[in-house]
Amino acid sequence: MILKVNGLEFTYHERPVLKNIGFELKKGQIMAVLGVNGAGKTTLLKCLNRILRLRMGTVFLDEENVKDMSRNHIAKHFAYVPQKYEEEPLTVFDAILLGRRPYIKWEATSHDLRIVEAILYRLDIEYLALRPTNQLSGGEMQKVIIARALAQEPEVLLLDEPTSNLDLKNQLQVMQLVTKAVREHNMAAIVSMHDINLAFRFVDHFLMLREGRVHLLAPREEVTAQDIEKVYGVKVILGDVDQYKIVIPVNENSEGAL
């Protein structure tokens, strides 16, 4: 499986949001999409599985043009985890079972139920199965939403800032869960993120957006302090602690910095 994006453009109310975006992603790879608020991260994710209508450019999954796929067909190949969710309180089991919607003809089969059950165990949330989703903590809910995406059995997982509202432990757990799922299911994942340190820790490929354009598309090792400064407008130094690469903003007496 290979995802190829070419010349993707998106305009929102006459205002160009994405300009000439292109990249490739193979299965087993995770790509982080980084950029300031409003850089177009969410828009990019939503264009890939046609939550937003694509105006210009192409998205190919292997030989198939996403533009020509039916919505249901797309839902079997792409799963999307939104940044915000305000859901009606289903039980956790039902909420994950909803991920089987693209496959369900009339009613969920025992096969569907088994898949949901397996995912519950895999994400260690089986104890939540019959709890209503409005009684979950933020971290638990995020896992349920990811579990639903996994129930779609996608080839490409799109996650919009999955760690933004979580505490440190849950951030690590969710990212571990995503990397593990990608590895085991041989999927590809695109994750929009704000936390560069978290991205450095878990993600191999970086796509940095600046004013709707690709500023940098490179493996983690090639990201420099200058790139981060360009994209975020903040002076930083890159350091190494243990085996982890970390980013530290440095104080500067100009207005633009901290």
């Binding site: 919505r71 079997k76 919607r101």
Partner: peptide
């Protein structure tokens, strides 16, 4: 009924679950 559940989960979620 499944589509109603999908819509109740949010527009973007419903779309990504294959619903127009």
């Amino acid at each position: 009924r499944w589509d109603l559940n999908a819509v109740s989960a949010g527009e973007d979620t419903a779309r990504s679950l294959g619903l127009d």
